[in-house]
Simulated assay, not measured.
Amino acid sequence: MLRITLKQLQAFDAIARLGSVSNAAQSLSLSQSTISMSLKELEDRLASPLFYREGRRLVLSGFGREILPKARDILDKVQSIENLGHSSEKTLSGEIRASVSTTIANYIVPANTGNFLKIAPDAQFNLRVGNTEQVITDLRRFQSDIGLIEGICNDSQIISQPWRKDNLVIIANPDHPLCKKTNITFDDLLAQNWALREPGSGTRDTFEKAMRQYGGQTFTLSLAIELAHTEALKRIIQVNYFLGCISEFAVQREIERGDLVVLSTPFLNLERTLYLLTRAGQTLSPLMETFRNFCLTQSVDDRAV
């Protein structure tokens, strides 16, 4: 006879995702005492603690990290069975838990979500925004089911599929001295002050890779500022003599208005691929599978617009 219940697994999963009994209770619309009891029953069944306390937050124990993927897989499969029961209604409803990197969140997701909701008007998006490393971490911790990133993912627990193409550009304000130069060199770039995205972002990784490919592993930049927000980065470059490197579709309006200028640097390979991520072995609900396929129908050769 099975002694572990779905209610116990749901409580375990919610605490792992949200970090506390109170947050888990709110997420599942249950009382804190019910969540605490379910967790205690599960730990008693398994004869091992699943969490330890770190300040006010509950953090997975080693054993908890080991069984979380199995628990989540069971819950996913049960959800799939429930969804099959409603398949005759031809409706796609439920929550889409996705983590997306910053540039994608600002400039691609608004149109994508709007277009998808025309197909599945009863879907609800729960979006988390961070840099590429944070998106990968969200998937590993089961805080999201799909990720959209600008960088490379080498995690063996994550499936990475090419999604679409994008180009980065070197930008400056119109009064920057390099805007008057017709043939910009690599040494010219090294001589400038820079404002860049933070380490761990896909944009920063692509830029540094391009610089290393052309100038070798030991190039040195004068870095004036690092920022995790593209909009703030653009504003800083507009009012200072800094160079920056961001996605071309993030600066379309500023270029059209003349607020920023794209410098010609054909010696740098700043093209990159954006990727869609899922966990290896994950069973997606019909809604999540439909959303994944919707994203992938945008050819890898299409530019982000």
Rank of each mutant, 00 (worst) to 15 (best):
5 T>E: 14
6 L>Q: 14
8 Q>W: 10
12 F>T: 05
13 D>S: 12
14 A>P: 04
25 A>H: 12
29 S>K: 15
38 S>G: 08
41 E>G: 00
45 R>Y: 02
49 P>R: 05
56 R>D: 01
57 R>L: 03
63 F>H: 10
67 I>D: 01
67 I>Q: 09
68 L>A: 09
76 D>E: 00
80 S>C: 07
82 E>A: 00
86 H>M: 05
92 L>V: 04
95 E>F: 03
97 R>H: 13
98 A>Q: 10
101 S>H: 05
106 N>Q: 03
115 N>D: 11
119 I>R: 05
119 I>L: 05
120 A>R: 04
120 A>D: 01
123 A>L: 05
125 F>P: 02
128 R>P: 02
128 R>V: 01
129 V>D: 11
133 E>K: 00
134 Q>C: 12
139 L>E: 11
139 L>Y: 01
139 L>Q: 05
143 Q>L: 13
147 G>V: 15
151 G>F: 06
154 N>R: 12
155 D>A: 15
155 D>N: 13
160 S>V: 03
170 I>Y: 12
171 I>L: 15
172 A>Y: 11
173 N>P: 13
175 D>N: 15
178 L>F: 14
184 I>R: 10
184 I>Y: 04
187 D>Y: 09
189 L>W: 07
190 L>H: 14
192 Q>V: 12
193 N>W: 09
195 A>P: 03
196 L>P: 02
197 R>C: 10
201 S>W: 07
205 D>C: 07
208 E>D: 12
215 G>A: 13
216 G>H: 00
218 T>E: 14
226 E>N: 09
236 I>M: 09
243 L>A: 00
251 V>L: 06
253 R>Q: 10
253 R>D: 05
257 R>M: 13
258 G>S: 14
262 V>W: 03
262 V>A: 07
264 S>L: 02
266 P>A: 01
271 E>Q: 02
274 L>M: 12
275 Y>E: 09
276 L>K: 14
279 R>H: 13
284 L>G: 10
292 R>L: 00
294 F>G: 09
295 C>Q: 12
301 D>P: 01
303 R>I: 06
